[in-house]
Every structure is written in structure tokens, then in C-alpha cells.
Design a protein around this nucleic acid. Sequence first.
DNA 1: CACTTGACCTGTCCGC
DNA 2: TGCGGACAGGTCAAGT
Length: 290
Amino acid sequence: MPELPEVETVLKGLKEVLIDRKIKNVQVLNEKSFFGFNAANKNRIIDQKIILLKRRGKIIIIILENKNYLLIHLKMTGQIIYRKGNYRFGAGHPNQSFINKMPDKTTRIIFTFDDRSKVFFNDQRKFGWIKLFNQKEYDNFSFLQRMGPEPLDPKFTYIDLKNRLFKKSNSILKAVLLDQSVLAGLGNIYVDESLWLAKLNPTLKVKELTDIQIKKLYKAIKSNLLLSIKEGGASDRNYININGQKGSFIKFAKVYKKENSPCARCKTTLIRIKVAGRGTRYCPKCQKIN
DNA sequence: CACTTGACCTGTCCGC
DNA sequence: TGCGGACAGGTCAAGT
């Protein structure tokens, strides 16, 4: 669910409101959601100013002025909701009825800032997390260290994609594309959509790919991610931006959740199988092997 | 080593 | 209407 375009949308929203804000209070409603934080080390974030926000893959990275880091991973059902401090019920918020309900039963952590605004970390299934790291812990965080290139980085070329993929040439294409150490930010939705666009069968082995196919895949990945960012992400069930609004990429989806519907290219009925343990949708005709 | 399965969780949907 | 089970999917750990 929250994959690169959704996390990028949340990041953009947070950048607009959190730069130079000081954290004044933190309420932890579910301890396991906040790794590395406890009553004794509260002072590492209280009264600290947020100086930088960025994204790496599906992770949001918040840097405090004392060089502590807050990392956020939304996993499947995580949400970041922002509410202005001067917000008054009924006062013109883009999604005020939703914001009015914060906190709700899925709220796990609440941050309050120096302008009395609040950030709610919601997560129905509790798989998501926020981690508090010092500089050393951040530098040693293996998940980030191992993470592959950003697919939208201008320096990322199709040759890079080819080289990354072929390190796992015996593996199944879909599994490799989901592997964050190969390429950062893709999840189930954008992998399936990109494979459809590139006319590639998800069960292909990487070593069976031709250069032309890799080039198509490269273009497909980038165009899907860019389109989705433009649309504010894909809201299947849980994903919303910091104002509680859904993204609209799903209406452009060609295969995701479209099993038993006709393929947009050839009208063949789309099918759903399981690949790498995940629900996988594709067109048996135009994504046929060979 | 590569691949699969289970664990982490909660809510929804489907069949009986 | 209730109830059990499958399913949703990001990542890690354990098993085959």
C-alpha cells in the first residue's frame, strides 16, 4: 500500500508544515510503534527543532537539530495525519470531518509542536513504526544501508536497473522487483502495474530478460511512479495524505485488483495468481512468457 | 544459496 | 445473523 508515491506524497505534505517546528510533546499510545523511545530519553526529541525531512524508498526521515533521527515506515496501514494548532471545528479544513475524529482507535503516537499543531501516527495493523536513532544508529541502520537506488533519481539509468536485476539473475522477476535492496520504493501495486505496462510475465526469471525488455520495464516503472505521484498516490483501502485525502492513481491501474476484468490492451480476462507469496494480477495473453 | 512460510496485527469479506 | 477462515501486503526470521 504505501509505496514510493504514497510516501512521497506524505513527505511533501509534512515538509510544508514541519520545517523549523519544535517538538513540544509526544504521547505514545502503543509502545511497539515507537522503537528506541522511552520516558528516560524523551529529552532527545523534546524541544528539538526539525531541520530537514527527506525520503529514502518507503521510509520518511526526519532530522532534528541535535542530530537525532526519526524514521517512519508506514508498512501497510500506516497513516500520518496533520492537524493545525489553530484549527477550529468547522473552520474550512479540506477534510474537516475526518480531522475532527483524531485521535481515533488506530492512533498509536501523537506529536505536538510549538505552534500547537499535531501529527497523529495511525496504524490499524501495528506493522508500521517510528524509530528514534542517534547519528551512529542511523548510519548503521542496515535496511537503509542495503537499500537499492531510487528509481526516480535522474542518475538512475536502465543500465543500472539491468545491473541490479542481474545480481539475482536466477530469481523470479517479481520477487526481485519487490526486493528493496535491488530497487527502492516498489511494492505490490507498482510492480504489477509496471510489469503489465512492459508486457512482462511476473514469473519470468531475471536471466530470461532481453535488453529491450529491461528498457521497457525501466520506462514503465518510472512512468507509473511519476503518474501516481501526480495523482497523490494510490488509495486502495487505508492510504490517505496528511490532510486525510485519498490519492487517485487507482483509477489508472490496469491490473491491480482487476482480476476477472478485461485487459485494457487485448480484452483477455485478467487473472490472479500467487507469486513470491503475494497476490499477483496480470494478463495471460499480453504478458505471456516468451 | 534460493525460495517458501510464518510472524507481526486488525478489519473485512465470503461461504455456510 | 453468527462464525470460521481466507485475505490484505512490507519486511524480517526461520525453515526447507
